[in-house]
């Protein structure tokens, strides 16, 4: 009996802690907190991204068989990592919106989409630029490249749907449903594309057993660049979400204005 009681209290306190977390989904709290945190994140981002890239570009040895062009991985790999992770983040925030109806969540997904699309585009373009000296072609219908092209199309559709719908709540609902369904199909496409063509692209450059793929000299600045890109994403995301919240509030105020005029 007493055992059960303890369990009960624990669950409650955990629930309370979770509730405290959800409070930051309130636009007012989010604005206050993000405004305070933002300068620090910008600083951290500058401290990792800039040295990471400089280190990678200028202070790593040229690889014997790759030449100078290998250094593009310091942009290519981080942007590709971000491209996928941003979609996952959008999936999570879309689900939060659909289940818990937190507006900040929906707006964060909206804000992330353009960043994600840009990252995908950067990954594709740097990949093409790198592919030319490496494989002698800008484009190959290799599974990885193709998957990224497909991911780009998903970003495009998602953003187009946001842009097409006037009512912000309707737009948030429909894009969230699209994001959830799209994620399933994006995953299926990934498998389908693998099945369809075994490609030229090397395996994942970064994995737990990293020594197999890339030596330490390249790996350390790469990790730094990836962290830098991650922080860059967080910075841009916060700024864009803040803008979206303001725009949303403007929308609410204008709607109210129209109503009191009527």
């Amino acid at each position: 009996m007493s055992q059960m009681k303890t369990n009960g209290t624990q669950t409650r306190s955990f629930g309370q802690r979770m509730n405290a977390l959800w409070e930051y989904a309130n636009p007012v709290k989010f604005m206050a907190l993000s405004g305070k945190v933002l300068p620090w994140i910008v600083g951290l981002c500058a401290l990792t991204l800039i040295p990471g890239l400089i280190w990678g570009f200028f202070f790593t040895p040229e690889a014997a068989n790759f030449g100078n062009s290998v250094k593009i991985i310091y942009v290519h790999v981080p942007s590709a990592t971000m491209a996928i992770n941003i979609w996952v983040m959008m999936l999570v925030t879309s689900l939060i919106w659909l289940i818990r109806r937190h507006h900040v969540s929906a707006l964060a997904a909206k804000a992330a989409a353009l960043i994600g699309m840009t990252m995908t585009l950067i990954a594709l373009i740097t990949g093409a630029v790198w592919g030319q000296p490496m494989w002698g072609t800008y484009w190959a219908w290799d599974p990885r490249l193709t998957s990224f092209l497909i991911l780009f199309l998903f970003y495009l559709g998602y953003m187009a749907l946001w842009a097409a719908i006037e009512n912000p709540d309707t737009a948030a609902d429909l894009t969230s449903v699209l994001c959830v369904v799209g994620s399933v199909f994006a995953l299926l496409s990934r498998y389908a594309v693998n099945f369809w063509n075994q490609g030229l692209h090397q395996g994942a450059s970064l994995s737990m057993d990293k020594e197999e793929h890339v030596s330490n000299v390249y790996w350390q600045p790469l990790v730094m660049a990836i962290i830098g890109f991650g922080l860059l994403f967080v910075t841009l995301l916060l700024i864009r979400t803040r803008t979206e919240i303001r725009r949303r509030r403007l929308h609410a105020l204008m709607a109210r204005e129209r109503m009191s005029d009527a």
Partner: peptide
């Protein structure tokens, strides 16, 4: 008729109260 000043804020959750400080 809903009074814009008194209506429970629209389901957009963007209550104007206390929002200014965060801007």
């Amino acid at each position: 008729k809903a009074d814009p000043a008194k209506a429970p804020d629209s389901n957009d959750g963007f209550d104007t109260d206390g929002f200014e400080g965060a801007y």
